[in-house]
Simulated assay, not measured.
Amino acid sequence: MAQHDTQQHFGKVAVLMGGPSAEREISLKSGAAILAALQESNVCAEAIDVGVDVFEKLQNGKYARALIALHGPLGEDGCIQGGLEVIGMPYSGSGVMASSICMNKLMTKQIWQGCGIPTPKYRVLSDSVDEDELIAELGMPMIFKPISQGSSIGMTKVNSKAEIAPAWVSAHQFEESVIAEQWVEGGEYTVAILDGCALPVIRLETPHTFYDFDAKYQSNDTQYHCPCGLSAALEKQIQALAVHAFDATDASGWGRVDVMLDKNNQPWFLEVNTVPGMTDHSLVPMAAKAKNISFNELVIKILQTSFKEDSEIISKKLTGQISAVCGAT
């Protein structure tokens, strides 16, 4: 596509990054990489570090659409998506409801349980934790997680009764809602989803206890295996289940589904990321590369997902007009 055609096709694009969440620094890195890719692809794009005046900036800047590179609460949980819908601006990735569901690990697991998608047993924790009862229900080890944080923030593996209270405190400092989840011993895998299709599965290997924040973004000893080493039949099965898990939450456009595979090759689905990282350590670009999709091409495909919002916004407006007409008759 020629430079003029590209700019005319997408219009002026706002890359939304930063924001106030605990994942701000990762978001800034993702946003910077995305912005560079768009500009190299001759898209007229500008960065916006998201603050309280973000919607004013978007309207005053006469942007045609937004590519969301925000991670964590307020950016990945439906809040920014809802604001963009209010001002009528198309945006990349999942909509309001799906973003809210996927950011909330409890809601995601409840939907999966209803759909028969395998996910580890869990317990929602309050201020008072009956440690013996928790151990009897989930066994040891287990893992504690804040319900609505990303990038493994606040997560702790618990190997003994004495570690329960400190793990709860670690998760609780980020939010009141905490879940304890049955630990799955086995391989860690992730499946990127793009335009309704699963990209090649990646197996993660880290000397850390699990694929935590440091292993994701800072460590140089994390290994990423793609091809993942599974049989073709098993990889295809996991890809199909990952798409099902993604669709069950109403997620759309692009994202990533994380899964564990136990010693019996039983997959256990953990969570959906609706705005995965796009840094030099990130998984979606790795999976795309395995399908011969360059980083710049990937970013354009992600931006392309914003066009579905055009039709949705038009549909809502038409529905409103029809309702008004029906109400007047």
Results as ranks from 00 to 15, higher is better:
Q39S: 03
Q149W: 02
G277C: 04
D212A: 07
A242V: 00
A33K: 12
I111A: 12
I202L: 15
T305I: 04
L106G: 03
S160C: 14
L35K: 08
L234K: 13
I300N: 03
L241Q: 15
K109R: 15
L318N: 06
C115K: 15
D49V: 11
M140Y: 13
V124I: 11
P73V: 05
W168H: 11
L298H: 08
I302W: 05
V178P: 05
E137P: 00
A240H: 08
P200E: 14
I135V: 15
P276K: 00
A324R: 10
A136D: 14
Q7T: 01
V13I: 11
V284H: 09
A2I: 01
H71E: 07
A251D: 08
R123K: 15
A232N: 12
I68D: 10
V275K: 01
G196Q: 12
G139F: 12
A233Q: 12
D212F: 07
K145P: 07
G75Q: 07
A290G: 02
G255K: 03
P166N: 01
D77P: 10
L318F: 11
I300R: 09
G18I: 01
H4G: 01
Q304E: 15
V191L: 13
E85M: 15
A66S: 15
A171P: 03
F295Q: 03
N292L: 10
W112M: 03
Q110H: 05
K289P: 00
A287E: 03
D5R: 07
A36L: 10
I238T: 04
K308D: 10
V13E: 10
K216C: 14
D247P: 00
P120Q: 09
V50P: 01
A192H: 04
D310F: 05
N296G: 07
I117G: 14
S92Q: 05
A36K: 14
V158Y: 01
E176A: 12
S27H: 03
E85S: 04
A64E: 08
S252I: 04
E56R: 10
S41N: 04
H4Y: 03
V325C: 09
H4P: 00
I164Q: 01
I48P: 03
E23P: 07
K289D: 13
I111M: 13
Q218K: 14
W112R: 02
D53Y: 12
L35T: 10
L16I: 02
V184I: 14
A37H: 06
P200D: 14
K157I: 13
V243F: 02
F246A: 02
A136K: 15
C79R: 08
A167T: 00
S252L: 03
G253W: 08
L38I: 11
L194Y: 08
A324H: 11
K291F: 10
V299S: 01
G320A: 04
T190K: 05
